[in-house]
C-alpha cells in the first residue's frame, strides 16, 4: 500500500532555534496516528507543517501523491501548497469558527468559495456532516451561542465538508471544559472507525490507547518513539517516554 502522507528529512527552524530535526514519517490510509509529547517538543509544529501553516525549512511533504519541497517559493510552490491544503482538513485547539457566519455558512464556506461547489450541493453535504456530529439542529445558530464542545464538533464538520483525504487535529480538546471533552472525542472515534486517516496531537492518553493504530512520541524536535499503543503504554523504550507516560498516569488519578 502507498502511504497517504510521506514526510522525508523534514527540518524546521524558528530563527536559530531548531524545532524539528530530520523528521521521517509515513502514514498509511485509514491509519489513526496520535502524536504526544511535552509542550514545546514540536508536535504542533510538525502537524502544522503538513498543511504548510508553517513552512518547513528543508525536506519534503507528500500528501496523496502531491509532493512539496519545503523552503521553496514561487507560483508552482504556492499551487502545490494549495493542493495539499485541499487534501487535508484541520481542527484547531481554539476552534476558530467564523463568528460572523451561522453554523451552516461556516461549513459551506470552504466548498463554495474555495472549490466552487454548487451551493445547493454544498448545503446537502454540510447538513449530512452536521448530522454526523449531532449538530444539524444548530445549523442556523451563530457560533457564539454554542458551547465549546459544540463549536469543536462544528469545526470538525467544517473540515470534513472539504472532503479531505487526511484530518489533522491540533489538541482538539485542550481548550474544553472537562465535561465537554467526551462529546468531541466520541465524534473523533466515530470518524476513525469510519476509516478516516487521522493525525491527532493530543494529551488524551485514553483516546490514544483506545483509538490510535500508532502513537508517536516527540521530544526536543525529534520523533523518539513510534509504537502500537499497547507496546508504548506497556513497555516504553525511551526513558523520556516513560517519564511522559508516568506524568499522565499521575495526572489521571
Amino acid at each position: 500500500m502507498v502511504p497517504v502522507i510521506k514526510i522525508s528529512n523534514l527540518d524546521k527552524y524558528f530563527g536559530r532555534l531548531h524545532v524539528l530535526k530530520d523528521i521521517r514519517l509515513d502514514v498509511m490510509p485509514r491509519e489513526v496516528v496520535c502524536l504526544i509529547g511535552r509542550s514545546g517538543s514540536g508536535k504542533s509544529t510538525l502537524l502544522r507543517c503538513i498543511n504548510f501553516l508553517e513552512e518547513p525549512s528543508h525536506g519534503s511533504i507528500e500528501v496523496d501523491g502531491i509532493k512539496v519541497e519545503g523552503g521553496e517559493k514561487g507560483k508552482l510552490h504556492r499551487q502545490l501548497v494549495h493542493d495539499v491544503r485541499l487534501k487535508t482538513g484541520m481542527v484547531f485547539q481554539e476552534f476558530n469558527l467564523f463568528p460572523h457566519m451561522s453554523v451552516l455558512e461556516n461549513v459551506i464556506e470552504g466548498p463554495v468559495i474555495v472549490k466552487g461547489m454548487d451551493r445547493q450541493k454544498a448545503v446537502e453535504l454540510a447538513q449530512q456532516n452536521l448530522d454526523n456530529v449531532g449538530l444539524l439542529f444548530k445549523k442556523d445558530e451563530y457560533p457564539n451561542r454554542l458551547s465549546g464542545g459544540q463549536k469543536q464538533r462544528v469545526a470538525i464538520a467544517r473540515a470534513l465538508t472539504m472532503e479531505p483525504k487526511v484530518m489533522l487535529f491540533d489538541e482538539p480538546t485542550s481548550a474544553l471544559d472537562p465535561e465537554l471533552i467526551g462529546e468531541v472525542l466520541n465524534v473523533m472515534k466515530k470518524l476513525a472507525y469510519e476509516g478516516m486517516t487521522m493525525i491527532v496531537v493530543t494529551h488524551e492518553m485514553g483516546f490514544a490507547r483506545e483509538v490510535a493504530d500508532r502513537v508517536l512520541v516527540m521530544a526536543d524536535g525529534e520523533l523518539i518513539e513510534d509504537s502500537k499503543p499497547a507496546d508504548l503504554f506497556g513497555s516504553p523504550k525511551d526513558p523520556r517516554t516513560k517519564a511522559l507516560i508516568e506524568r499522565y498516569r499521575s495526572g489521571e488519578q
Binding site: 485541499l86 476558530n96 463568528p99 468559495i113 469545526a155
Partner: peptide, 27 residues
C-alpha cells in the same frame, strides 16, 4: 481579527485575497 481566523481560512484553502474579503474584512 485573531490569527486563528486567518489560519482557519488558509487551512480550508482560501487564498490571501479570499481570506481578507470573506473572513477578515467583515469582522
Amino acid at each position: 481579527v485573531g490569527k486563528g481566523q486567518r489560519e482557519a481560512a488558509i487551512a480550508i484553502g482560501m487564498t490571501p485575497a479570499q481570506t481578507m474579503r470573506r473572513i477578515v474584512l467583515p469582522q
